[in-house]
Design a protein around this nucleic acid. Structure first.
Lengths: 195, 195
DNA sequence: TCCTTAAGTGGACACTGTGTCCACATTAAC
DNA sequence: GTTAATGTGGACACAGTGTCCACTTAAGGA
């Protein structure tokens, strides 16, 4: 799901027209998702807006969700990098409770900036199948490893970050991102202890 | 969304063939949802299985979700009744932490028995628009009323009960309902204090 | 019992969106 | 400049949705 596949292995380089079209598709999709909301965008819309045929579009992206995933990918990678090798409390070094709190804050920020894409990925259970979910899951799993039942707890702690939940809180209830962050930070403290 | 509309007001009684067909539709839908999963059931399937025309089906139920809601309704009402007027710890009288724990346990039980219906309701954000969600929300809101920011906390606490999350834990991860319940009970204790 | 009428029925129809297929165009290597 | 593989785009078949309306059926009054 990377943007380009440069010089890797002996994989045949991507043709010039192909990568030009990929860029047009992604730009068009980003635009449409942001404007109308992913639910109201058809593959046809994307193809038309990008100035590309249906066949070209389907060649790389079998559905809307995969386009949203591709668009979200770069932003998610940046955060993943920070979690693995960044400075505390996001990166290693801080206490689990603080790292979980920082993770929550970063995810709320990510969601707030790209909620239209996050909702585009969400086609029900699609979310759990995503590679990204697996990453977040592994990260939080490690932070709660010392608790009673980490394998059951981890998805409970990730549940409030579901795009639909976040959208409901932000848009329907009108809560600020800060309030949501504060609440999740408090949750992290209570679950992992203030120690 | 009640099953029958008996003698209420001056509303014209439902005709015999109409209520016969409603029963056939609900039975067919229940069966199909349980067998194939709601996602793989079309309105046409339901009409055919019920032995009813499309027009008849659409007259009362504009989409799959509304049928699932109708089917789930009776079970949810029973729980709602208990929350309002049942014995503690589910009903009034017990401490908030215990009531929230009991609520979690009851909801996990409900989800476990009717997950195919709960997933049928779930068409993304549909969940929050449901009357039922409003009820759960009001209930939990009252239990956490004394905390820092109840309005932000309530949806965070309800998020792990999203049908998709539950399904993932039960089916993809293979967790038992008891483990999930225990984890949520612990969460309730940690958030509302053991006091 | 028959008649009336309003409610209810069911299937045909138009429409929207999906995904596939393949003749043709473009690219890049030789 | 030729060639072979890669990529393109629009036509097509299909599945599911929701609407519409001529017909049927139930239920109450004469």
């Amino acid at each position: 799901m990377t943007a380009v596949n440069l010089l890797d292995d002996d994989a045949p380089r991507e043709r010039a027209d192909a990568s030009r079209n990929r860029a047009k598709v992604l730009a068009a999709a980003e635009e449409l998702f942001a404007t109308r909301g992913a639910k109201n965008v058809t593959m046809d819309d994307i193809a038309k807006t990008a100035g590309v045929g249906r066949g070209t579009l389907y060649r790389r992206y079998p559905d809307r969700a995969s386009i949203a995933v591709a668009l979200l990918d770069s932003h998610e990678r940046a955060l993943q990098e920070e979690l693995l090798r960044g400075a505390p409390p996001l990166g290693p070094g801080a206490r689990p409770a603080d790292r979980l709190g920082a993770f929550y804050a970063a995810m709320v920020d990510l969601l707030d900036r790209h909620i239209h894409l996050a909702l585009g990925v969400e086609v029900g259970h699609t979310r759990f199948a995503t590679g990204a979910y697996g990453f977040w899951r592994a990260h939080v799993r490690a932070l709660v490893a010392h608790t009673e039942d980490p394998d059951a707890l981890v998805d409970v702690l990730l549940a409030p970050l579901a795009p639909e939940v976040f959208r409901y809180q932000r848009e329907d209830l009108g809560l600020s991102a800060d309030r949501i962050t504060a609440t999740l930070r408090a949750l992290a403290r209570q679950v992992l202890g203030p120690s």
